[in-house]
Simulated scan of single mutants.
Amino acid sequence: MQYLARTTDGRALLGDEDGYVPLSAADPALERVQDALPRAAAGTLPAVEDAPADRIDPEHVQFGPPLERFGKLWGIGLNYEEHAGDLDEQRPEEPASFMKPNTALTGPGGPIRLPPAERTDGVTAEAELAVVMGRECCDVDEAAVDDVVAGYLPVIDMTAEDILERNPRFLTRSKSFDSFLVVGPALVVPEEPLDLEELTVRTIVNDSVAAENEVRNMLFPPAEIVSFHSSVMSLQPGDLFSTGTPGAEPIEPGDHVRASVETIGDVEAPVVR
């Protein structure tokens, strides 16, 4: 695995299992993580060991969001059959997608800021696997999705369930409050195609596993999600698909939330109001 990341003060990093180096030290043409996304999709990122720089221990790095600015933020609802059943919802025949504004996104560590209670008092947190695009594309066949994806992130998605319950047309509003999407600290770039079906996604609140499931049990796997949406619109580097949750858990101020995606990593954040 290779990793693309940014510090809280905006320095772009390239990493492997042994640590990070400045991205521009590995290749002076790559000043920003955004610049490296097409090469991540193509499998041509420079090697960390070839950079004339000492490795930085990730324990000594304060990570911000991996990209200075993401593109389109897509979410997929009801993508695990068990979760749809828990909500007494019918299995969708096509991806049940929605979009979130860029202002909803915050970096690792959050915090997740709950809106005033009079606005919503029923927020849930959901762990998800996210896919980040690396190349501009349109009408991509499922078999070619690996060629346009830069990498993967763990994310925490939030929903104001009480708003959504009042009317399903309020979905966008229920998903769009500031800090309602927490992204992981590093974009994971597989050096070989990754068998996503084997991965387990867990929603963890206060160190207790609230929900878990394997990607193999998604109704629409990541490659199908990307292919389907590429037939609707052009996808661009930095676009993100949050692929659905195995289950949501109500959260309150003082709680601590973690999304854990096997092999991809964890992201966590405290809950405040």
Rank of each mutant, 00 (worst) to 15 (best):
Y152A: 06
E252Y: 14
A130N: 10
E59V: 11
D16W: 06
S230R: 11
R69K: 13
E212D: 11
A144V: 03
S227L: 01
L129Q: 12
P46E: 07
V132E: 15
R258L: 10
P250F: 02
L87Q: 03
P250Y: 04
G254P: 06
S24C: 02
D50I: 13
G122D: 14
D18W: 01
P28N: 04
D27C: 10
I76K: 15
S97W: 09
K72P: 01
V21T: 12
A248Y: 06
R216M: 11
F98V: 11
S97A: 10
Q236D: 06
M1Y: 11
A259C: 04
A143S: 14
P28Q: 07
D18L: 12
D195A: 09
M233F: 10
D207M: 09
R39T: 03
I156K: 00
G238F: 01
L23A: 07
T103Y: 00
Q34H: 02
A248G: 11
D266E: 09
A160T: 08
D141S: 13
I163Q: 15
G43T: 03
P46W: 02
N206K: 02
P22R: 07
A211R: 00
F241V: 09
L14N: 00
R69G: 07
K72H: 09
V215Y: 07
A186Y: 09
A5R: 01
L219R: 15
G10K: 08
D162V: 01
R135S: 12
P58Q: 15
V232M: 05
A26H: 07
L219M: 05
S208N: 11
T124V: 14
K175L: 09
P116Q: 02
M99I: 15
V272Y: 09
M218H: 06
K72Y: 03
A269N: 03
T203D: 04
D207I: 05
Y3T: 04
D239S: 05
A47Q: 14
R135C: 15
L37E: 09
E142F: 11
V183N: 09
E128P: 05
D18T: 10
V48F: 06
D195Q: 13
I163L: 13
D239R: 02
L164I: 10
T159V: 01
V140Q: 14
T120N: 09
L153V: 12
A117Y: 10
D255V: 00
S231R: 15
S242K: 00
A25H: 10
S174K: 05
N213R: 04
T172W: 08
A36K: 00
S231M: 10
L73W: 08
R6Q: 14
Q90C: 04
A150H: 07
I264V: 13
A53N: 01
T263V: 09
V145F: 08
F70T: 09
P185N: 11
E212C: 11
A12Q: 05
V33C: 13
P190L: 10
S231Y: 09
T245E: 08
A40W: 07
T200D: 13
P250M: 05
D86S: 01
A223L: 09
Q90V: 01
E89S: 15
E59G: 15
R55P: 03
G247E: 13
P28R: 10
